[in-house]
Amino acid sequence: MSEEIQAEWPLYEVFVRGKRGLNHVHVGSLHAADDDMAVRHARDVYTRRNEGVSIWVVRSNDVTASSPDEKDPLFDPSGDKVYRHPTFYDIPDNVPHM
């Protein structure tokens, strides 16, 4: 038996669309030997009570994430742009529908 076979099944991240019109949302992770099995396992583990109409799975190793160490510099550009928010603008009370 090779070492590869003894190794664990790879880890997958699971995303479920709760119903039509909603985004797929990350719900957790699971192990599976391949992509098809990951979808089946995701159905059994994360949608036993009609929680989903669609499932995405992706190998955890294939996810690229922002680094927690760079959190502040990465998100800095949006920090000082208050004018991107509607509340930045004063509109007189007598102007309706705005």
């Binding site: 038996m1 590869e4 076979i5 003894q6 190794a7 099944w9 030997a33 391949d34 099995m37």
Partner: peptide, 12 residues
């Protein structure tokens, strides 16, 4: 079962 599934995935 775990080994067979891994072998199948590797073959594919």
């Amino acid at each position: 079962v775990r080994e067979a599934a891994t072998a199948f995935a590797q073959k594919n």
